[in-house]
């Protein structure tokens, strides 16, 4: 029973973070039609910035907010410097086919991932370092029992919940949010309505960058920080996004929690070594049964 509760709690708090990662991927996919494989590289880099600030005597919150800002700035720069020039090049021969148009931005994002990881290695060395948590990482005590649930878990879950509420309100209630949704759904009609689609697209990259940086800040206290630590998080986030539906923000959240539970239960009841195989199994299962994901729309984009 205790194992079950522990798995459930750990699945919830991990799932919250994966939901954030998946949400970041979904926002850029909807906004720009690109799966950004560099996303957690950006998160790693901004977490390093936070880590450097904090070890140099600044408060956790200074590091926290600077990292969020850095994540957003990196996302926007990446779009302006790499992805936008690439999408303006559609007329070249190599990019004249659908399949290459889909492949080339992925290759570019992998290049960015490689560059960020190498740069982090140069700046901060490759060995792992810890990253502080703003709340206690010991379980709550209930009478004489130590519960498998920590103050930090509570912090993670409430912060993610807050983020989800804010993003939902932003997308549903503001004009910029409407412009971003319109751009994602139908660029031509958006342009004809006077929406500056280039700008809204850059904004999706920035929001996604901030969301994934938040994920980085929340996951590194339990997993340590190195140039490659967040690769696995990206894989899980990608799987979560596909499970929920790449074009559905709500699906991303759902997928994140499903993956969190799967990983947590495999870790507690089986062995951590099976985690990857179980992720692969979940991914293949979803792709075979419901290729557009649980909440994905029917034919917005071809799988």
């Amino acid at each position: 029973m205790n194992t079950f509760l522990a798995a459930l709690f750990s699945g919830t708090s991990r799932g919250a973070i994966f939901a954030l990662v998946a949400l970041g991927l979904v926002i850029v996919w909807r906004g720009a039609g690109i799966v950004n494989f560099a996303q957690m590289g950006q998160a790693m880099f901004s977490t390093y910035i936070a880590s450097t600030l904090i070890t140099n005597g600044n408060s956790y919150w200074v590091g926290f907010f600077v990292a969020l800002f850095a994540g957003a700035a990196m996302g926007a720069l990446l779009d302006i410097l790499v992805m936008r020039p690439l999408s303006n090049k559609k007329k070249t021969e190599l990019l004249s086919s659908d399949s290459m148009r889909a492949a080339v931005p992925v290759i570019a994002s992998l290049g960015i991932l490689g560059a960020l990881q190498a740069l982090a290695g140069i700046l901060w060395a490759a060995e792992e370092r810890g990253f502080p948590a703003p709340a206690k990482q010991e379980g709550f005590t209930f009478g004489s029992n130590v519960m498998p649930f920590t103050a930090f878990d509570l912090f993670v879950i409430s912060l993610v919940a807050l983020t989800l509420v804010i993003t939902t309100l932003f997308f549903k209630k503001t004009g910029i949010g409407l412009a971003m949704r319109a751009t994602a759904l139908n660029q031509e009609v958006a342009k004809l309505s006077g929406i500056r689609t280039n700008r809204t697209r850059t904004l999706s990259w920035a929001i996604s960058g901030a969301a994934s940086s938040l994920a980085g800040l929340l996951i590194t206290p339990t997993s340590n920080l190195s140039p490659n630590t967040l690769d696995l998080v990206l894989i899980v986030g990608f799987t979560a996004a596909v499970v929920g539906g790449l074009d559905s923000p709500a699906g991303a959240v759902l997928g994140g929690f499903i993956l969190g539970m799967v990983i947590s239960f495999v870790t507690f009841y089986d062995t951590p070594e099976d985690v990857f195989l179980s992720i692969l199994a979940v991914l293949l299962l979803v792709l075979l049964i419901r290729p557009r994901g649980i909440l994905g729309s029917k034919d917005v984009r071809r799988v």
Binding site: V35, S99, V106, V242, L246, L284, L287, P291
Partner: peptide, 8 residues
């Protein structure tokens, strides 16, 4: 196809 294939 595309990113689905790459990610998988």
């Amino acid at each position: 196809s595309g990113p689905y294939l790459a990610g998988t």
